[in-house]
Every structure is written in C-alpha cells, then in structure tokens.
Simulated assay, not measured.
Amino acid sequence: MSSLNLLVSVASEFPVSHLDRVADRVTFQLAIAMASGEVVPFKIAASPGPAQHVIAREIEPKRLPAFCPERHINSDGSFCINWIQGDPRPVVDTESARAWWASLEDYLRLQVAASKLRRWPGPAWAHGHAAEYQRSAEAHARTLGEPLLSQVTHGSLTTRLDYRRGHNRIELRANGEVLNRINLPFRKLTNLQMPCPCPEGTKTKRPIGQCGQHAEVLAALIESLHRRKKAEDKYIADLRKKHIRCCGTLDRCPLK
C-alpha cells in the first residue's frame, strides 16, 4: 500500500475532514485543538516524497508564512515535520501512518503557539544538514543524563572557538558557565578534573576523568554541537546570499 493510501486508511482516527484524493495528492482540513479550548483549522495538501516520506504544506499560505526557517517551513512551503536527514520516518504501515498524523498535529500546534508568542515555543530544531549533528549531540547527551539532554534539545548549550594561550580549543558553555573544552585537532577534553555533567558527577563533583567513559562522550558532544553551529551558520549565510529576508512573524530571527 502506498504511503498516501496508508494515511487515508487511518485518517478517521484524527480530526480530519474534507478529505479528497486526486492522483498523487491528498487534501484535507485538520482541526488543531489547543489547550485553551481554541480549535484552529488548517487546510493541508499531502503528496509523496522520496523513500515513502510524505510531504505536507498549506494549500495556500494563509495561517502560516510561505517560508520561514525559524518556524521550520521550507522554501517550497513544505513542513519540516521530522528531520528527514537525521531522523527518517517513512510511512510504511498503519503504525507509521498514525505517527505521521500525530507529528503533523504536534507541528501545527507549535505553529499556532508561535504565531501568538512570536517565538518558536518548542525544543530547538536544527536546519538542513545541521539536523544530523543535532541528532548526534542528543545521542551523546542522552548517555550523560536527562538534564544535559534537556539542555541540548532546548538549545541551552553553546560552543565557541577559543584561541587563547596559543591553542585552538572548542569551549562548551551552559548559562555562561564553562563546562569543559576540547583541544584541536585531537578533540580531547583539556581538563579531566572538571566535574562530570552527568547527574552523579553534578551531585558529588566527581572529576569527569574518573567517571567511566564520560570524558570521551562529552568530547564527542562538544564536537557535534560545534559542527551543528557551523552547519546552521552556513545555512543562514546561504539564505542571505539568495537575498531571502525574515517573514516578520517572529521577534527574533537571524534573517532580520
């Protein structure tokens, strides 16, 4: 069964109406229920993408901007529901079809909130190829515990190149505090006596060099976050070269 047929087969389980299928395109209205009780209808078109992915977009850009990287709407108007490069989720059976509908609901719920708050309300999502590095960073952070994973997913950790003392290093910071650094080109932690950021290390101030394999994991996390930042910066720079400007729907945007 095709990916579109799978979506249609489970559509009745979701707040979908006015569903119509014409060739390789399905149009429908999806009612998004907010916590406030407000119900916001979206008119959506879905079409098949590569490798059994399904691409969704507004039939006409009325409630959403035609393009906004900060709101994860691609230049062709399609929605970045999942990170196709870093976390592929093709529609191959009824279970994945239900997951697609649920992801679309969550995505549009975030969009409604973004319009009201004028900021992206959910976890930080990477753009373009940066998604691959964010997924890698989250995997490393998960090994170090839920608190650090939460900081990664919400964009609370920052990296910067540090050229002091004649050495090239990448510095990891959280809320202005240095957690550790890796040296270049060896990509090893520069200070194994600093506390491990895992829950036990945070509680007991255990040096990261004495906390199992966490020194190697944190070094890999720092590198992944740094690569994510470089990929994000390049993504925005490429948009600027194309003279693409901010859509004006959010207060903070790198394209302003």
Rank of each mutant, 00 (worst) to 15 (best):
P48W: 03
P50I: 03
P50R: 10
Q52F: 12
I55E: 08
A56E: 00
E60V: 13
K62Y: 05
K62L: 14
P65E: 04
A66S: 13
F67K: 05
C68A: 12
H72T: 01
H72F: 13
N74W: 03
S75D: 06
I81Q: 04
I81S: 04
W83F: 10
R89A: 11
R89Y: 05
R89T: 08
D93K: 02
D93T: 06
E95H: 06
E95A: 11
A99G: 06
W100M: 05
W101D: 07
W101N: 08
L104T: 13
D106M: 08
Y107L: 09
R109S: 15
Q111K: 07
V112T: 12
K116R: 15
L117K: 14
W120M: 09
A126Y: 02
G128H: 06
H129E: 14
H129G: 01
A131Q: 15
Y133H: 15
S136D: 08
E138T: 09
E138Y: 00
E138N: 02
A139L: 06
T143Y: 07
G145L: 09
G145S: 12
E146Q: 14
P147W: 07
P147K: 03
L148E: 05
Q151E: 15
V152N: 00
H154I: 02
G155Q: 01
S156R: 15
S156D: 14
L161E: 13
D162F: 05
Y163S: 13
H167L: 14
N168P: 01
R169L: 06
I170T: 09
I170V: 15
I170L: 14
